[in-house]
């Protein structure tokens, strides 16, 4: 009977430890995902600003190049 009690206590403790580990893993994954998202958004914002700048300059260049047609 005592042995059975010990067995129940031990398996309960193992279950609690396993739960804690899962929580920790999930929390760590969520943290990494949040950091990844933040970085990815920063990268996209940077690319967006590069594209916008290039498109604006391309437009300006086009109008100047068109003006060369009458030379």
């Amino acid at each position: 009977m005592k042995m059975l009690n010990n067995l129940i206590i031990a398996s309960s403790l193992l279950a609690i430890v396993a739960c804690k580990d899962t929580e920790k893993i999930e929390a760590a994954e969520a943290e990494v995902a949040a950091a990844t998202i933040e970085k990815a958004e920063a990268v996209e914002a940077e690319l967006e600003s590069v594209t916008k700048e290039l498109e604006k300059k391309a437009e300006e260049l086009d109008s100047s190049l068109d003006a060369l047609d009458d030379i």
């Binding site: 994954e29 969520a30 990494v32 995902a33 990844t36 998202i37 990815a40 958004e41 990268v43 996209e44």
Partner: peptide
Amino acid sequence: TGAALGQARTKYA
């Protein structure tokens, strides 16, 4: 969620 979300987000970027 979690790692899968991070990977999908990176792939998109």
